[in-house]
């Protein structure tokens, strides 16, 4: 379990997170929603270990993150960040192979190759493997980085033929607005890849701007407002007109999807 308890973060005299507690469960997608400046990205940074909290605990399997060896931690949790700045002409395959860096000490190139091949295949970019990254479209780049983080936390397939993650040592994937700047089809492709990972016991946390995506894909929705978690639960129970009014200051209508029954948010 990757869990943050009672997290406080203050920067430049401003409370960014106040008493935030959140445990990411393996095998589920947890979506984080909230208005701009609510502390969503800070929460993700604290959960990843990149940003120390001023108080509170962040633990993976009961051990504080700062006590984990860097490489061991990197084989258990990966982050798809918004700020990837790659502008050097790697091939797509080379970018995905960067995800295997924390496994260098294992010295198992066959396993690395297998993980890279599988990550390319699962994100449907096998055909792009030899393309130069800098010539790709935004959607293709995003899928390349998704494949990279999947290769990073890749686990040998269990007997049932599924992919990443086993119940004993589940992996965690933190996605920071993975659908940003993507068109409709690619937004849903990214989220369905996340769904596949969760189905293979990866614990997925995704910061989302579009509550519709959260409603369609998440098992659990957490809403942040001014650094506090103001709602946490199943999409049907969290995504209510009252929540949208209090957290976002926006009146909406919520109806059930005619086929899936999941909530659909209609703006006025």
């Amino acid at each position: 379990m990757l869990a943050a308890r009672d997290i406080h973060v203050e920067r430049a005299g401003r409370q960014i997170l106040r008493a935030a507690s959140l445990a990411i469960e393996p095998g589920a997608i947890t979506a984080v929603l909230g208005p701009n400046g609510a502390g969503k990205s800070t929460l993700l940074s604290v959960l990843s270990g990149a940003m120390p909290a001023d108080s509170g605990r962040v633990e993976l399997d009961g051990l504080p993150l700062r006590d984990w060896p860097r490489q061991a931690l990197a084989t258990r949790r990966a982050v798809l960040s918004q700020t990837t700045q790659l502008n050097f002409p790697f091939t797509v395959r080379q970018v995905v192979a960067l995800g295997r860096a924390p496994h260098a000490a294992e010295g198992d190139p066959d396993r690395d190759r297998h993980a890279i091949d599988a990550a390319l295949a699962q994100t449907d970019i096998t055909a792009l493997a030899q393309r130069t990254y800098t010539t790709l479209s935004g959607g293709e780049r995003q899928r390349t980085h998704l494949a990279r983080v999947m290769a990073q936390i890749w686990r040998d397939a269990p007997t049932d033929g599924a992919g990443a993650g086993t119940l004993e040592e589940p992996a965690y994937l933190l996605l920071d607005e993975p659908s940003n700047n993507l068109d409709l089809l690619h937004q849903h492709q990214i989220m369905s890849h996340a769904r596949d990972l969760a189905d293979r016991q990866v614990g997925v946390l995704a910061i989302l701007h579009d509550p519709g995506l959260a409603a369609a894909y998440a098992d659990r929705v957490v809403v942040l407002k001014e650094g506090r978690i103001v709602a946490d639960g199943a999409p049907e129970s969290v995504l209510t007109p009252a929540l949208f009014l209090s957290a976002f200051g926006m009146p909406v209508t919520v109806v059930g999807h005619p086929e899936t029954g999941r909530p659909v948010i209609l703006s006025p």
Binding site: L73, A74, T75, R77, A78, S81, T84, A101, Q152
Partner: peptide, 12 residues
């Protein structure tokens, strides 16, 4: 080359 945050996430 991915950026410092991503290099950190990869365990460097």
């Amino acid at each position: 080359l991915l950026g410092e945050a991503d290099a950190y996430h990869l365990g460097f």
